[in-house]
C-alpha cells in the first residue's frame, strides 16, 4: 500500500489537528471543570411531585450570591413558572421530568441539557448580564412542545 508523500503529510496534519482538538477538550473538560452535564442521580419519575425538593419547585438561596433552582420540566411547561435572581447570581439548576423527555436550554449561554424521566440533570450558570433570559424546551415532547418555555429575570 503506497501513500503519496502529500497524502502522508495531509494525514499527519489532519491527525495532529484532531489530537489538538482532543487535548484542548480534555484540558477544558477535566482541568477547568467544563465537562458536559453528567449528573448520575436518579429519581422515580412516577413520584416526582412527592419527592423533595421537587415536590416544591423553586429557588433556594444557598450562599451570598448563589442559588439552587429545583425545577420540573413537564408537558408542556416548567415549574416554577417565573424566577428572579440578582445580577451576578450563580444558579445551580437541577431539573427532572415526571413524564416524557424534555430539553432545557437558555439561549446565549452554555446551559443546554436533556431532561430524562428517572434522572436529575444539573448545570450551573452565573448571570453577569441583566435581562429576561428565555428558558425553552428543545426536545420534542408532544403537541404543545412549541409553547414550553419560561423566563428567568436577572436584575
Amino acid at each position: 500500500m503506497h501513500l503519496h508523500r502529500y497524502e502522508k503529510i495531509w494525514l499527519i496534519l489532519g491527525a495532529g489537528g484532531l489530537a489538538l482538538f482532543i487535548l484542548l477538550l480534555c484540558i477544558n473538560a477535566f482541568a477547568m471543570g467544563m465537562a458536559p452535564p453528567s449528573n448520575m442521580t436518579m429519581i422515580d419519575p412516577t413520584k416526582v411531585t412527592e419527592t423533595p425538593p421537587f415536590d416544591n419547585p423553586g429557588l433556594t438561596k444557598v450562599g451570598d450570591q448563589e442559588y439552587d433552582a429545583y425545577m420540573t420540566a413537564f408537558a408542556f411547561g416548567f415549574a416554577p413558572n417565573k424566577m428572579e435572581v440578582p445580577l451576578g447570581a450563580k444558579v445551580n439548576f437541577h431539573v427532572t421530568s415526571p413524564d416524557v423527555i424534555h430539553g432545557f436550554q437558555i439561549p446565549g449561554t452554555n446551559v443546554n441539557f436533556m431532561v430524562l424521566p428517572g434522572h436529575i440533570s444539573s448545570a450551573t450558570y452565573t448571570f453577569d448580564e441583566p435581562g429576561e433570559y428565555l428558558i425553552l424546551c428543545n426536545e420534542y415532547c408532544g403537541a404543545g412542545h412549541q409553547v414550553m418555555a419560561t423566563t428567568i429575570i436577572v436584575k
Binding site: 494525514l11 489532519g14 491527525a15 484532531l18 482538538f21 482532543i22 477538550l25 480534555c26 473538560a29 477535566f30 465537562a35 458536559p36 452535564p37 453528567s38 449528573n39 448520575m40 442521580t41 436518579m42 443546554n112 441539557f113 436533556m114 430524562l116 428517572g118 434522572h119 436529575i120 440533570s121 444539573s122
Partner: peptide, 23 residues
C-alpha cells in the same frame, strides 16, 4: 453528550473514537 446518567469519562472515550473516524 448533554444527558444525565452517562459519566464524563465515558462521554470522552466516545468523543475520541468519533474523531478517529474523521481520518
Amino acid at each position: 453528550l448533554m444527558e444525565p446518567g452517562i459519566s464524563e469519562g465515558w462521554k470522552m472515550i466516545h468523543v475520541i473514537l468519533t474523531l478517529i473516524v474523521v481520518i
